[in-house]
Amino acid sequence: MLFLAPVMAVLGAVAVFPIAYSLYISFFSIKLTRPNRTPFVGLKNYTDLLGDEAFWGAVWRTVSFSLVSVSAIAVIALLVSLLLNQEFRGRRILSTILLVPWAIPYVANALMWKWIYDSSYGALNGILYQLDFIDKYMVWLGDQDKTLFLIANAFVWKEVPLATILLLVSLKSIPADLYLAARVDGATVWQRFVHVTLPAMKPGFMLVMIYETMMAIRHFDLFFVLTEGGPGSASHVLSWHIYVETFRNLSFGSGAAMSYLLAIATFALSYLFIRTLGRKI
């Protein structure tokens, strides 16, 4: 125990204490700009949030963003991993290229997409215009009906490589004997995919779904760089809501309460995935 003490002390200082303290301050009305007024409010920060229209709007947008992006990541990563599981010329080069988005830092990725989506000099407009798909430059991020999907697209681009690798590992672990046995039994390609490949990929899928859902729910960088929650409130998701409340309004009490609700939601979703996808593993 004596030898563990320094590690325990460091962990206590940098992990346990901040977590416990943030829970503690979520029961107070703490605004840094009102340092002399920090009354204990019990669960009021939480109950106020549950009755706050803006909060539920942010929840809805977070759910929409997560559903769209995680679904897209899962489908694209599955297709790419199936492709990379085949032997063909240039496979290694393709695998290397695939890793590039993963290697780009989040903020750099966000800045790159900001340029791509720009309505006056963006590459997206440039390409579409030159290909005659549009007759004048379009407004992308400024169009509230498109904003969330465009941000989801940038998120998917960044996240697909990791998801692909996780799925590829699952694919590589499937014994060749199973495919051989299925062939002997007369199974078609589709039947082999449905009855051999997919069941064997369940652990990888579970990992991808849990990880990517957690990433999508908590994602902040793209919203910060691309839209700052706008236009209007079109991309005002939960992570942005927490940032504004905590670091712009400097309301640490209600910001902490929101963070705990987000953490609980993330845990709940992870549990749900494990219960459903993990049941038959």
Partner: peptide
């Protein structure tokens, strides 16, 4: 005025 004004910051507008 461009409908993109809601995504145009001061610096981007200046450059434009």
């Amino acid at each position: 005025v461009s409908p993109a004004c809601v995504e145009t910051g001061e610096l981007a507008g200046l450059k434009s």
